[in-house]
């Protein structure tokens, strides 16, 4: 499928980049690396083992991984059709919808959680009737985390996927359709492979955002160890009690996300 994707650019150059570029890139890299270094310096390495095997952290890790992966999958299932609509169809309110998609990125997550609560919470106009009708409670449950995670993470997927869809050379799709391929067939054999680099970047970004989600989850869904306490919530609770343990949990989060991202890198994350 290499020929179809729009990746016709030259391979990376072996020449030396301009000094200005090196300088700016070094500052940018430093901005990422130095805080990580700072965290590593403060990490209580001798306690890492006992923190990692504590019930609190094992539970939180399980809940975080499950909820963030579920949210990334949901964001994909719901977000790709939305990106498809935004990219391919002209309809009233398209621009407005496009702006609304970025709302969760702009909104302080805590406010996002309050907003989710007023819809899906127990007093909300969706959550209230569901609870009184069926007794089901979304809030304070695992699915409440997934909801908050999906809310904050889906914009990353929609935006990258829409950009990828816009960059697709539509003549290939048209050609396949002319040759008799059905709509779904064109989508799965031509469109998806063409947008795959963008789509997988979107999935990774959405997962990472969901994994680190804190504010919306706390405000909407609360935190209960073993049931709804994710890693970021565990970090925050520990921060007011045992700073060392909080940093140890944060380091575990960094390690888990690095492991996930680097293991995906060869198959997924490497654009070439």
């Amino acid at each position: 499928m290499k020929g179809i994707s729009s990746n016709d650019s030259l391979p990376p150059s072996r020449e030396r980049p301009p000094v200005v570029v090196i300088a700016a890139a070094a500052v940018a890299a430093g901005l990422f690396l130095l805080p990580l270094l700072g965290l590593l310096i403060r990490t209580p390495w001798t306690r890492l083992g006992s923190v990692l095997t504590s019930d609190t952290v094992l539970d939180a890790l399980r809940i975080s991984l499950l909820s963030s992966v579920t949210a990334a999958v949901l964001a994909c299932i719901l977000g790709v059709p939305l990106a498809w609509m935004l990219s391919r169809y002209e309809f009233r309110g398209r621009q407005a919808l496009r702006s609304i998609v970025t709302l969760p990125m702009v909104l302080p997550p805590v406010v996002g959680g309050v907003a989710l609560g007023s819809v899906f919470g127990r007093g909300g106009f969706v959550g209230g009737p569901i609870e009184s009708g069926s007794g089901l409670l979304l809030q304070f449950s695992f699915w409440g985390i997934v909801l908050a995670n999906t809310f904050v993470a889906m914009p990353f997927l929609v935006i990258t996927t829409e950009a990828a869809l816009n960059a697709v050379n539509r003549r290939y799709e048209a050609a396949a359709a002319t040759l008799g391929a059905s709509g779904p067939r064109v989508f799965t054999t031509i469109t998806i492979p063409s947008i795959w680099p963008g789509l997988k970047a979107g999935i990774v970004l959405a997962w990472a955002r969901a994994f680190g989600e804190f504010g919306a989850t706390l405000t909407f869904n609360g935190s209960l160890q073993g049931r709804t306490q994710t890693m970021p919530l565990a970090v925050f609770v520990e921060l007011s009690d045992d700073t060392d343990a909080a940093i140890a949990i944060a380091i575990i989060m960094v390690a888990v996300s690095l492991i996930v991202l680097t293991s995906l890198r060869d198959r997924w994350w490497n654009p070439s």
């Binding site: 309050v114 609560g117 007023s118 919470g121 304070f140 706390l218 609360g222 935190s223 709804t228 609770v237």
Partner: peptide, 18 residues
């Protein structure tokens, strides 16, 4: 059903009848 990391976030949920 929830153990909030600060009293304000707990109060907010009681205020909202959540």
């Amino acid at each position: 059903d929830t153990e909030e990391p600060n009293v304000r976030s707990l109060l907010l949920k009681i205020e909202n009848a959540e």
